[in-house]
């Protein structure tokens, strides 16, 4: 498959600008963790995954579960750019009353959202359920799951990790967005999960470590994951929280802090200049 990396970079930048505008517009939402996963979402939705925005329920579609549901702005902006709904909705709906775009993903309200999420730790189990269901019905589709590194504190993630390897779910690939920060502080300060890749390996997963902002590395990992038939694949993606806007990068506060007018303007200028 020939991939136009330059075009994907442009799409990723558009998605970042949409995220910044959405969160500034409503003065609510999670910027940092949304920015850290943008390249992965772009690679999935603009190259890797098989789906039809006009027929979002087609049974043989690939599925994506955003386990770190607070980064819904990244998913919504990606889905809008992928054609699931008009882009104007991003500003008129997100986090507003009577709207289709809740603060955290709601599969019954937003076209393209495969699973309701927001409470951390649950997404991989639901992704496993999808993968099991697809296998049982001989549907050759794949399931992708995005897990935060802070989210690895949740015990259920490890229950699900064991389930996926026990059932040899080679149709699932989980991205671990290792941006190194969580709500309160650095992940290593809050609760050090030590060697993340080793943990997934110990749970029976095929583990690939990449730079989560590098499209070539993301695609190489996705190709490897697709070809791997002995079980599930974990793609440990090293990323930068707040990636794309220099003064937001690696700043704990931008987990949930909304930008001021000045920060919005400076951030937007920076993204526009890319």
């Amino acid at each position: 498959m020939s991939r136009n990396i330059q075009e994907l970079k442009t799409t990723a930048n558009t998605i970042r600008k949409d995220i910044l505008e959405m969160i500034y517009n409503i003065q609510s939402g999670h910027l940092g963790g949304s920015f850290s996963e943008v390249e992965i979402l772009t690679a999935l939705y603009f190259d890797e995954m098989d789906y039809d925005p006009v027929n979002p329920g087609k049974p043989d579609r690939d599925r994506f579960v955003l386990s770190k549901g607070h980064t819904a702005p990244a998913l919504y902006a990606t889905l809008a750019n992928a054609g699931f709904f008009p882009k104007e909705k991003l500003m008129s709906s997100f986090r507003r009353i009577d709207s289709m775009m809740q603060g955290h993903p709601d599969m019954k309200k937003t076209p393209g959202v495969e699973m309701t999420s927001g409470s951390l730790g649950i997404g991989l189990s639901t992704a496993n359920g999808m993968a099991l269901g697809l296998k049982r019905q001989n549907i050759d589709s794949r399931v992708y799951c995005m897990i935060g590194d802070g989210e690895l504190n949740e015990g259920q993630i490890w229950e699900a990790a064991a389930t996926a390897s026990h059932y040899h779910l080679d149709n699932i690939a989980a991205f671990i967005d290792v941006n190194g920060l969580q709500n309160d502080a650095e992940t290593k300060k809050v609760k050090d999960m030590l060697d993340i890749a080793a943990k997934w390996r110990a749970f029976g997963w095929n583990v690939i470590e990449i730079n989560g902002h590098n499209f070539e590395e993301i695609f190489e990992a996705l190709d490897t994951a697709r070809a791997y038939k002995d079980g599930p694949t974990a793609i440990v993606a090293h990323t930068i929280k707040g990636k794309g806007v220099s003064f937001m990068e690696n700043v704990v506060a931008f987990h949930g802090k909304t930008p001021t007018a000045m920060e919005y303007e400076n951030g937007m200028n920076e993204l526009n200049s890319k």
Partner: peptide, 13 residues
């Protein structure tokens, strides 16, 4: 917790 969440995922298929 994995049990009931896996069931949720299965139902979506």
């Amino acid at each position: 917790t994995d049990l009931v969440s896996t069931a949720a995922g299965l139902s979506t298929t």
